[in-house]
Write a protein that binds this DNA or RNA. Structure first.
Lengths: 110, 110
DNA sequence: TCTATACTTAAGTTATTGCTTAACTATTGA
DNA sequence: TCAATAGTTAAGCAATAACTTAAGTATAGA
């Protein structure tokens, strides 16, 4: 069973590593096997597998093993969680600016 | 001069730390001084200052020192950079699914 | 002017991460 | 059946990151 938690902490921690972001960029173009994923990266297959574990546990990547080949693909859940957190911050921040604008407009009228 | 690079690496690395995300959450409610920011956190003021440096260098936070008080606030640039990266991945991934859907529809017609 | 406040900076320690090597399992194809 | 392929897992190492302490500077208020 795939470890899918997708809590904010796991997701942002996973995205914090540059190699894992490169993996995400590759995967957004379409599903690919572990060794094909590893080839252009200058690290060992074992290291790639470890990154994939982190990505899968955070809900950013889904994998399925058929025969001896594990195929990896984007799991939209993780990206959604991250997108949502950022949107929440921006929205709170923007609402505050709006209220500030209203207050300034009011004081202009006076 | 404030170090504002806002490259993807800096931004995601900065957001990868839970304490820094708590700082961002606090700041989205409005500007606040360094020591007010530090009070609820269970780390020293020096540690908070270090986190703020990372956040400022990544373009996620802006600070201004007036007198002896440094006031911190959200810098939307950093959040935009992160949001954009995620949106790009999702969009590429979704477009691929659409093409896949078209192909399946075509093969249904045949 | 003198003291408290609000940071700032440097140095050192500890914990976490990313990586490698190496030995292993499971599957495929000749 | 036997070798090559594809991935797994554990152990250990080295770099980085987060944090602390401690000593400093600059400003505010009495």
């Amino acid at each position: 069973m795939p470890e899918k938690k997708a809590d904010i902490h796991r997701v942002f921690h996973a995205l914090g590593d540059p190699t894992r972001r490169i993996i995400m960029e590759k995967l957004s173009a379409g599903p690919i096997s572990v060794s094909h994923l590893a080839t252009p990266l200058k690290i060992t297959l074992a290291a790639v597998v470890q990154h994939l574990q982190v990505l899968e546990e955070s809900g950013l990547v889904r994998t399925e093993k058929i025969g001896r080949v594990r195929t990896c693909s984007i799991d939209p859940v993780g990206l959604l969680v991250a997108e949502q957190w950022i949107a929440d911050r921006r929205s709170t921040w923007e609402k505050r600016l709006d209220r500030l604008g209203d207050l300034l407009a009011e004081s202009d009228e006076a």
